[in-house]
């Protein structure tokens, strides 16, 4: 395990900030344990994805410009969400294609912004973070992490590095859980049907915990598992790697 990496700048997605603060704290503890210095710019808000995905690009541009100004000087930005990183990397350039100055800044920040597991495995090359877990773990590929920024192996390697965790693949792990942000609110019936398929695959895997890298998906998955009274736990990967997981369904 490398002792120290140059300081990284943390971007906490608004969903985690507002609804799952324990995931942010787990991320911080994990980075600290790995000797990675970090800073947290107080002015951060949201990457703008909710507006962008809903078709409100002008409003998304406001958020994106703010993001760019907050993180302009950051050498490396780390974010415990594939979806937000995909927004910054893939969609900011589209938002600023008519403004050469901002486009250049957006592309610069995009290339320096990493999802948590992508950073750990690709940059300092960590695969064993020294975490422990007792039980069987399966992994849900979130769409934007997998297809947006091409992260498939990194979280799996990290999970396999957790002592005591037995990793199993579920069927169709890369199949959308039905969340899709506003999609699940606009079309809850279709979303629920998609979620049912996901839940069936999670349960069939026999895992004690389903781990993911995006709280949007996990909130959705947890919502149904908890409604069903299932004992399968949902965990953000930062919580698994932190090694002292707080059960979300237990109210942290």
């Amino acid at each position: 395990m490398p002792k120290s990496t140059s300081a990284v700048t943390l971007f906490i997605p608004c969903l985690i900030d507002s609804m799952y603060p324990e995931v942010a704290h787990a991320t911080v503890r994990l980075l600290r344990k790995l000797g990675i210095g970090l800073s947290y710019p107080a002015g951060q808000t949201c990457c703008g994805q909710p507006a962008f995905n809903a078709g409100y690009w002008k409003e998304a541009r406001v958020a994106a410009e703010h993001f760019i100004s907050v993180f302009a000087d950051a050498e490396t930005v780390i974010c415990p969400s594939g979806s937000c990183v995909s927004m910054v990397r893939n969609h900011y350039p589209e938002l600023f294609k008519d403004s050469p100055r901002l486009l250049k800044m957006a592309q610069g920040i995009g290339s320096r912004t990493f999802e948590l597991t992508q950073f750990l495995v690709d940059v300092p090359g960590v695969e064993d973070v020294g975490a422990r877990f007792t039980g069987t773990v399966t992994y849900h590929d979130s769409c934007h992490l997998l297809r947006g920024i091409g992260v498939r192996d990194q979280p799996r390697r990290l999970i396999q590095g957790v002592k005591g965790a037995h990793f199993v693949e579920m069927k169709d792990s890369d199949y959308c859980c039905g969340f899709g942000g506003a999609f699940s609110v606009k079309y809850p019936g279709i979303s629920t049907a998609m979620l049912e398929s996901k839940i069936n695959n999670i349960i069939a895997s026999g895992a004690h915990a389903v781990v993911g890298c995006d709280m949007g998906c996990l909130m959705n998955i947890e919502g149904m598992l908890s409604r069903m009274g299932s004992s399968v736990r949902t965990m953000h990967i930062a919580q698994l790697l932190d090694g002292s997981p707080h059960s979300q369904s237990g109210g942290a």
Partner: peptide
């Protein structure tokens, strides 16, 4: 189909 998540007191920021 879904329960709401437990609501934390404070954001992490």
């Amino acid at each position: 189909g879904r329960a709401l998540p437990p609501i934390p007191d404070k954001s992490c920021s």
